[in-house]
Simulated assay, not measured.
Amino acid sequence: MNSMPKIIGDFMELAFSSKICKVKVEATQMLSENIKMIRFKGHFPHVNFKIGQAVIIRVDDTNYRNYTPSKWNSKEGTFEVIFHIHKNGPGSQFVENLKINDQVTVGMPRGFEVLKKEEKYQFFYGDETCISVFKSLKDEIDYNDNNYLGILELDPVSMKVPDKLGFSVDIVPKSINKAEFAIDILNKLDSKIWDLWQHGYFYLMGNAKSIQAFRKVLKEKGVPNKKIYTQPYWAEGKIGL
């Protein structure tokens, strides 16, 4: 059996040891058949986490996957991630099998802060892969007494997850025509509501083609580029983005 892949993975951990932490699974909860929430416990008191940053998790000897925490507390040494288990690939299999007290290798948060705290009106659009980051955005927006709207495209088994997490968003099924039902809701927004939200900030995440379709409609409605944040997490036929 070739041990070289594991050696390479171990070398990467050693080379970046200052940015890597061993954590344990402290709690797990299945929010639906394909959505799993996990709380991790470790020691990272000096990490200055920013909403929207991602951690990298080692899922086997050679593979790492990026995930965006829904909660982070450096002082307590805890963070939470809401995972989408799509039953396809090593990351999904790894997350599905995680149980309490399992040890996990995690690369510390990196990236820019996504949340625009100065914006009074904010809008989310995405799918199951975005629930974790949307949860962190929602909690901070609520904390700052600002306002949000959102549209999530979900599989039938995930439809009740937003309610469990306290989201106030519209839920639509996915369509062959990317973002079709979400765009329909956007076009039917009351004119008084749109008068406010058209000047807000839009977070478009998830499927690359769906993002493109939704963004096109926002542009046609006069929303400027600087007010639209896009983050594709996946695309058909591609492993990770």
Rank of each mutant, 00 (worst) to 15 (best):
Lys71Asp: 06
Leu241Asp: 09
Lys138Met: 13
Gly200Phe: 05
Lys219Ala: 03
Met4Ser: 11
Glu33Ser: 12
His46Lys: 09
Ala27Ser: 14
Ala213Asp: 04
Asn34Thr: 12
Phe83Ala: 12
Glu140Gln: 14
Gln212Ala: 09
Pro224Met: 00
Ile183Ser: 04
Phe16Asp: 15
Ile141Leu: 07
Ile239Ala: 15
Asp102Trp: 01
Val169Leu: 04
Asp102Val: 02
Asn147Arg: 05
Ser210His: 03
Asp61Cys: 03
Glu96Arg: 14
Lys178Gly: 04
Ile183Ala: 08
Pro5Arg: 09
Val114Cys: 11
Ser92Arg: 10
Asn147Trp: 06
Gly166Met: 03
Gly222Asp: 02
Gln122Phe: 01
Ile183Lys: 13
Val172Trp: 05
Leu149Thr: 01
Asn73Glu: 10
Lys116Gln: 06
Gly237Tyr: 09
Asn73Met: 06
Arg58Lys: 15
Phe49Val: 09
Leu14Glu: 10
Pro173Ala: 09
Ala235Glu: 14
Asn66Met: 10
Glu26Leu: 13
Ile185Leu: 15
Val157Lys: 14
Phe49Ala: 08
Glu236Tyr: 08
Gly126Cys: 04
Lys188Thr: 08
Leu149Val: 02
Leu137Asn: 00
Leu152Thr: 07
His86Ala: 12
Glu236His: 10
Asn2Pro: 12
Asn144Ile: 04
Leu204Val: 04
Ile151Asp: 01
Asn2Trp: 06
Val133Pro: 08
Tyr121Met: 05
Glu118Gln: 13
Phe11Asp: 09
Leu149Ile: 08
Ile183Met: 08
Lys178Phe: 07
Lys117Gln: 11
Asn63Leu: 01
Asn88Thr: 15
Trp234Leu: 10
Thr129Pro: 04
Tyr121Ala: 02
Met12Ser: 11
Thr68Asn: 09
Val47Gly: 11
Gln212Cys: 03
Gln29Asn: 10
Leu14His: 12
Phe83Asn: 08
